[in-house]
């Protein structure tokens, strides 16, 4: 097969599979935020990638501070929390100023948030410069370990995966096992009825949107461990993460996880055997064709509309 021995192919599969897992983690974190905003509220947030970049820049900024105060070992946990909070607050403000006026016009939301993403990109460029910057990573995140000869597994990948796992579980618990999540789901299923039983639906909208943005911020913090950050970093992932959400079935958490996994794995394994661009083309093309045949996505929500 392509001139490799069976053992080599096996090792390549494992290693590419693992690098696919890092991509999967970032995509999943991005898509979780989007799935909440798009799946629950029906709002297309084209600036979602920029909220991720906000998280990434927050981490980079904090890492520079951490180097000055010599706390590189432990700052990362705080960076994740800070990234979440800053993206959350920003999302909250954006919802209040912009999104809430556009709920009845989903296509227009798409254009307005695209405009927002352009403005945010320029803000990043003016503040942090056009060059890509990377965070100072604590030592325990660097390096890799070798379970067997020929297989290298980077630690930052494992860390990002663990983070994605934690966030996913928290999102699940919040959405399906807490009062807050109950309010969100009630509002999205029947806004008028939810209002009638005493839920402040406008407040719910705002918090839901902000939460989605906050998770994108965490995705940004995770992103800094595997790559460097530039002003347009977020926009590179926006189409992919939308594909993840749509492919998985907009309102389904399981679907989002499954499709993030499928897309990330397909992309990273195909990119090894074909050229990088053809791997991406093949993956996207497959998704589009599947979506054309099955528009409701992999896991369709069984809700009557």
């Amino acid at each position: 097969m392509f001139g490799y021995t069976v053992e080599e192919v096996g090792n390549i599969m494992v290693m590419q599979g693992f690098s696919g897992l890092s991509l999967f983690s970032v995509l999943l974190l991005m898509a979780l935020g989007l799935a909440i905003i798009f799946g629950q509220m029906g709002v297309i947030n084209m600036a979602h990638g920029e909220f991720m970049t906000v998280g990434a820049y927050t981490t980079v900024f904090l890492s520079k501070l951490a180097v000055e105060y010599d706390i590189v070992k432990s700052y990362f946990v705080f960076a994740i929390i800070a990234a979440f909070i800053i993206a959350f607050v920003l999302g909250y403000l954006i919802e209040y100023m912009m999104i809430r006026h556009l709920y009845k016009r989903p296509l227009d939301t798409l254009l307005a948030t695209w405009g927002l993403s352009l403005v945010m990109q320029q803000v990043f460029r003016s503040t942090f410069g056009a060059k890509e910057v990377s965070a100072e990573l604590p030592e325990w995140l660097l390096g890799s370990f070798q379970p067997t000869e020929g297989i290298d597994i980077p630690i930052n990948g494992v860390f990002v995966m663990a983070l994605a796992l934690i966030v996913t579980v928290s999102v699940y618990l919040y959405m399906f096992r807490s009062r807050g999540g109950l309010r969100v789901r009630a509002t999205m299923q029947n806004r008028v009825m939810a209002g009638a039983v005493g839920i402040n639906t406008k407040q719910v909208d705002r918090v839901t949107f902000a939460l989605g943005c906050g998770i994108a911020g965490v995705a940004g913090a995770a992103f800094t461990t595997i790559a460097s950050t530039g002003p347009t970093t977020g926009s590179l992932y926006i189409v992919d993460s939308f594909m993840v959400v749509v492919f998985g079935g907009a309102a389904s958490l399981m679907g989002t996880i499954a499709s993030a996994f499928g897309i990330a794995q397909a992309q990273s394994i195909l990119q090894f055997f074909m050229t990088s661009s053809m791997g991406k083309v093949a993956t996207l093309m497959t998704i589009v064709i599947i979506l054309m045949m099955r528009p409701e996505g992999l896991f369709a929500a069984k809700v009557r509309k």
Partner: peptide
């Protein structure tokens, strides 16, 4: 898309993805 009643934002996202595919293909 239209015979399967895909419309609205789904249509926008999928056309966007197709445009992305085509541009990567041309560059690649």
């Amino acid at each position: 898309m239209f015979t399967r009643r895909v419309g609205g934002v789904y249509f926008s996202i999928i056309t966007q993805a197709i445009a992305l595919i085509l541009s990567i293909l041309i560059v690649g």
